[in-house]
Amino acid sequence: MVASKSLPPGCMLRPARSEDLGRIRKLVFQAKLDPTQLHWENFFVIELEDKIIACGQLRQFSRCQELGSLVVEKSWRDRGLGSYLVRHLVEEATAPVYVECMGWLVDFYEQLGFVKIAWENLPKPLKIKFFLGQLGSKVLPLGVTILQANPLKFPHS
Score class of each variant (00 low, 15 high):
residue 45 V to R: 03
residue 67 L to I: 11
residue 18 S to F: 08
residue 15 P to Q: 05
residue 37 Q to F: 10
residue 122 L to M: 09
residue 70 L to Q: 08
residue 155 P to K: 07
residue 21 L to Y: 02
residue 141 P to S: 15
residue 112 L to A: 05
residue 91 E to A: 14
residue 34 D to M: 03
residue 31 A to N: 06
residue 69 S to L: 01
residue 145 T to G: 00
residue 66 E to V: 12
residue 126 L to P: 05
residue 27 L to T: 04
residue 31 A to T: 06
residue 146 I to E: 03
residue 145 T to R: 10
residue 40 W to R: 02
residue 109 Y to R: 05
residue 153 K to A: 14
residue 81 L to T: 07
residue 14 R to P: 00
residue 5 K to V: 09
residue 82 G to V: 04
residue 51 K to W: 00
residue 152 L to Y: 01
residue 47 E to A: 10
residue 88 H to D: 12
residue 24 I to N: 04
residue 41 E to R: 15
residue 144 V to T: 11
residue 105 L to I: 02
residue 93 A to Q: 02
residue 17 R to K: 15
residue 64 C to K: 03
residue 7 L to R: 06
residue 137 S to Q: 09
residue 16 A to E: 12
residue 100 E to G: 10
residue 18 S to M: 10
residue 77 R to W: 08
residue 1 M to S: 12
residue 153 K to H: 10
residue 34 D to R: 02
residue 130 F to C: 02
residue 121 N to C: 13
residue 10 G to T: 06
residue 42 N to R: 09
residue 56 G to L: 06
residue 12 M to D: 01
residue 60 Q to L: 12
residue 128 I to V: 15
residue 123 P to G: 10
residue 84 Y to C: 01
residue 155 P to I: 08
residue 128 I to N: 12
residue 52 I to D: 05
residue 27 L to C: 12
residue 49 E to C: 08
residue 8 P to T: 03
residue 109 Y to I: 08
residue 55 C to T: 13
residue 104 W to A: 10
residue 113 G to Q: 08
residue 76 W to R: 09
residue 92 E to V: 04
residue 39 H to Y: 14
residue 48 L to R: 07
residue 44 F to H: 13
residue 9 P to C: 05
residue 109 Y to E: 01
residue 86 V to M: 07
residue 125 P to E: 06
residue 12 M to G: 00
residue 51 K to L: 11
residue 91 E to H: 07
residue 57 Q to P: 00
residue 22 G to I: 11
residue 30 Q to E: 15
residue 115 V to A: 12
residue 30 Q to M: 08
residue 133 G to A: 09
residue 73 E to I: 04
residue 108 F to R: 07
residue 125 P to Y: 09
residue 127 K to E: 15
residue 42 N to L: 04
residue 58 L to C: 03
residue 15 P to W: 04
residue 23 R to I: 10
residue 11 C to S: 06
residue 18 S to K: 14
residue 40 W to L: 06
residue 134 Q to H: 14
residue 8 P to S: 02
residue 109 Y to K: 05
residue 76 W to Q: 13
residue 22 G to K: 10
residue 50 D to Q: 10
residue 67 L to H: 01
residue 25 R to A: 05
residue 138 K to Y: 04
residue 147 L to T: 09
residue 53 I to N: 01
residue 99 V to R: 07
residue 95 A to N: 06
residue 61 F to M: 12
residue 61 F to K: 01
residue 30 Q to P: 00
residue 84 Y to V: 04
residue 22 G to D: 15
residue 147 L to I: 05
residue 81 L to A: 01
residue 86 V to T: 15
residue 12 M to H: 12
residue 124 K to S: 15
residue 118 A to K: 15
residue 28 V to H: 03
residue 91 E to L: 10
residue 137 S to D: 10
residue 14 R to H: 05
residue 18 S to C: 11
residue 143 G to W: 07
residue 11 C to M: 13
residue 155 P to S: 10
residue 69 S to H: 13
residue 35 P to M: 00
residue 9 P to Y: 05
residue 157 S to P: 00
residue 130 F to K: 06
residue 92 E to N: 11
residue 29 F to L: 11
residue 44 F to Y: 15
residue 135 L to G: 02
residue 150 N to H: 13
residue 117 I to H: 07
residue 111 Q to A: 14
residue 38 L to G: 04
residue 83 S to M: 09
residue 115 V to M: 12
residue 89 L to E: 02
residue 36 T to Q: 09
residue 55 C to Y: 07
residue 99 V to E: 06
residue 16 A to Q: 04
residue 134 Q to N: 13
residue 157 S to K: 11
residue 141 P to A: 15
residue 99 V to T: 13
residue 23 R to Y: 07
residue 36 T to I: 09
residue 123 P to E: 04
residue 55 C to G: 12
residue 2 V to T: 11
